[in-house]
Design a protein around this nucleic acid. Structure first.
Length: 150
DNA sequence: GCCAACGTTGGC
DNA sequence: GCCAACGTTGGC
């Protein structure tokens, strides 16, 4: 079992929306590195730190889980979608997605600021300089440490 | 709204 | 293959 952190802008899709819907196809990832994490790393049952980005208090706000291995993201073939990719072919889809399931909200937001101040996290993909990945790996140690802060 | 950091595109 | 221009992410 592996652990991940997935970012979402709360105005686009918040932890409360995931709580309501219970399950969400994580479409729209259009970064190769993030796609590779989903394709090569993610398996059913993996843990997800749900992170709010681009908001007043960026940070980890909840826990989710990966519900299935990566599969074709249909929005890449939809000309009306924001995520349409004219260069992707049906028989060779460029973009994948996973389904994410709601587990629970944290009692409080564990803010980016707080995470930056924790040397215990070591080399953490989230706080690496200039990091912009929306899907990134979390070690078992980081997972436990972050949740212990709750 | 600003802007640093990064990824992508496309001319050459 | 290089690299300038451009677009996007996301913290502040």
């Amino acid at each position: 079992m592996a652990y991940w952190l997935m970012k979402s802008e709360p105005e686009e899709f918040s932890i409360d929306m995931l709580k309501q819907r219970k399950r969400e196809p994580w479409n729209g990832v259009r970064n190769y590195q993030a796609r590779n994490f989903m394709r090569d790393g993610m398996r059913k049952g993996d843990g997800v730190l749900f992170y709010h980005s681009n908001c007043a208090e960026p940070g980890v706000v909840g826990i989710a889980e990966i519900l299935c291995a990566a599969y074709t993201d249909p929005t890449q073939f939809d000309p009306k979608s924001d995520y349409f990719d004219a260069g992707s072919k049906y028989d060779e889809p460029r973009w994948l997605m996973v389904d994410v399931g709601y587990k629970r909200k944290l009692k409080r937001t564990i803010s980016l600021n707080e995470l930056k101040e924790r040397p215990e996290l070591g080399d953490f993909a989230l706080t690496r300089r200039g990091n912009r990945l929306s899907v990134l790996p979390v070690t078992a140690e980081q997972w436990q440490f972050i949740l212990a802060l709750e």
